[in-house]
Structure formats: structure tokens, C-alpha cells
Design a protein around this nucleic acid. Structure first.
Lengths: 125, 125
DNA sequence: TGTAAATAACTACAAGTGTAAACGTTGTCA
DNA sequence: TGACAACGTTTACACTTGTAGTTATTTACA
């Protein structure tokens, strides 16, 4: 689980896998067809690399592979988030939060939810 | 301003520059001494690459260079943030915000500030 | 004014990335 | 059972990145 590093393009693949696993490579290729303009071979290469990195495993079924992630998305999100916070916001969460609040669209419910999280956070002090 | 891509290590250098510019390379090296364990030559290489990428400019003063950024930090932050949001949170800001709220420490004032931002955001609807 | 010290430029090199073609193997339909 | 299609494997290649040594140039002190 240590220092797995998932590249930009690989994240795109992993997002598909985490959402629909287990998936065959054809299914993955199909899912990605809208999002990215990759040759099937390109996606196969990435699957291969992800297996080598121990981020994915596969089971063979006939001549096709069925892929499954072997790291939890939440763990990868946590790791990537920490590194982003460090790199771009020099480990200061408040400006990061302010930035995203100000530059993105949020529905009324989402705002309410976020407020609730802040409430809870404050209560915990 | 388009698609400048600043790497991980380069961000560390740029953070120093943005904070103290204009700076000579020795000053940059000195600043980074605490943060990273890089040989001076390594930092010079990065400065060089950043100049080539048009992220930095320099002025020659005698035999030393004085560096200045030629892209605004805010622009780079915006770009990196958008790309992170896309990659890791599939362009959904609310989960991103929830994640960082829940996994980081925030002071009472910071929480208050964030609430204020949410208030304003809601009022704008 | 020559030589040492400082500084920037050039060169290096392995690992990772994006991108994909070529190849070999296996399954399937005629 | 033979040929084609489907699928995974291997090979490829240029670019980026992290990391730093080597070289050339400039300055400054003796």
C-alpha cells in the first residue's frame, strides 16, 4: 500500500475500474472510449503497468482477463490529496478549501452538507 | 499561459520563488536547503528547465542571475487544482471539499472564514 | 595579471509516461 | 480442421523528471 504512484492517465483507467469492477479489458476500453481518445493497445499497456505496480490484479477466464483493483480508491485519494495539498498549497488546507469553494459550482444541498461537516468539526474541538 | 506543466520538484522551487522574488540562485538554493536534500546543481538544472518552459525569467547581474517568475502563482494554482479535481475527484468539487475538511486540521477562525465563504456563495444564487 | 573561487551551461543517465504497433496465442465459426 | 478474429504480450520510442557530475566562463583577490 506504501508509495504507489498512479500517473495521470492511469487515474483515468482506475476510476473506471473502481466504479465497475470486476471488468474485462474490453469493458474498460469501452468505458474509456467517450472520455479519452486512446487506442485499445494503449489501454492494454496501462492495465499491464498497473498490474506490475500491484494496483490491479486479474483473473484469467478463457483468453480474457478480468481485472480488479487491489488498492482501495480511498487510500489512493488520500495519498494523492496529501501530495497535492503539499505541492500546490504548501500544506495549508484552509486556502485550498477556500480556493475550491470559490472556483466551483455547488448546489444548495452540497453547501448545506459542507456546513454540517464544519459544524461537526467545530464541535469536536 | 496555456498548458504550462510544472512538475512536483519544480513546484517546490517555484513556491520559493513566488514568495521571495526576485531571487538569485544562491538564495533559492539556501531557501531550499531545509526543505529538500538537493545538490545545488540539481536546483540549477530545475531553474534552467523552468526558464526553458517560460515559467521563469532571469536578469544577469555580473556573473549571477536574478530570477523572477513570469507566470502568476494564482494561475498555476488554478490550473493544477482543476487538473487534480478532474483526475482524483472526477470533477466533483463537493466530495473534494468534504475530503479535505475531514482530513485536515482547521482553526476556529479558519472554520469561520470558510463558513463565510459558503454564506456568500449561497447568497449569490 | 594570474590564479582560485564562484557561477552558470552542458552532459548524463536511469526511471517513468504517453502512445501505440507488431507479434504470438487462443478460441471460434465455417 | 483450418483460417480468422480476439485477446494478451512484447517491443518501441520520444519526452519528461529526478538527480547530479563535469566543464566552461567570469569575477575577484592576491
Amino acid at each position: 500500500m506504501a508509495h504507489v504512484s498512479i500517473s495521470d492517465a492511469e487515474w483515468q483507467v482506475m476510476n473506471v475500474v473502481w466504479e465497475g469492477q470486476p471488468l474485462t479489458s474490453q469493458e474498460i476500453v469501452a468505458q474509456l472510449a467517450d472520455q479519452a481518445d486512446w487506442a485499445a493497445a494503449t489501454i492494454k499497456t496501462m492495465l499491464h503497468r498497473l498490474v506490475k505496480k500491484k494496483v490491479l490484479t486479474f483473473e484469467q477466464q478463457g483468453n480474457r482477463y478480468v481485472y480488479r483493483s487491489c488498492v482501495r480508491r480511498a487510500d489512493c485519494v488520500k495519498q494523492a490529496s496529501r501530495s497535492f495539498l503539499q505541492r500546490v498549497f504548501e500544506s495549508e488546507p484552509a486556502p485550498l478549501l477556500a480556493h475550491f469553494m470559490q472556483t466551483t459550482k455547488l448546489s444548495a444541498e452540497e453547501i448545506a452538507d459542507l456546513r454540517r461537516i464544519l459544524d461537526k468539526k467545530e464541535a469536536q474541538k
